[in-house]
Amino acid sequence: MREVRLVYFAWVRERIGVGDEIVSLPDTVVTAGDLIAFLKTRGEDYAAALEHENVIRVAIDQEHVEHDEPLGAAREIALFPPMTGG
């Protein structure tokens, strides 16, 4: 188990119900995709927020990554929808 800080934005944040939290990850969670699958087991809110896994974007320590990226020694992992700035 290891602890990481998770941060959520936009409708991912709204559906999960918090903007950030510290979560203990089991050792089976290796990649960003594993993290999303793990979070979906934490309750209905998480399952609803992450239902369409393929649209969820991930950033590790504030850098964009693909879902197959290993989390490594990440301190902060962000999950958010496709961006709509500009």
Partner: peptide, 14 residues
Amino acid sequence: IMDYLKTAAPFWKK
């Protein structure tokens, strides 16, 4: 810059 900003800079509009 604008084309990349719209798709890679973490902003969301409500």
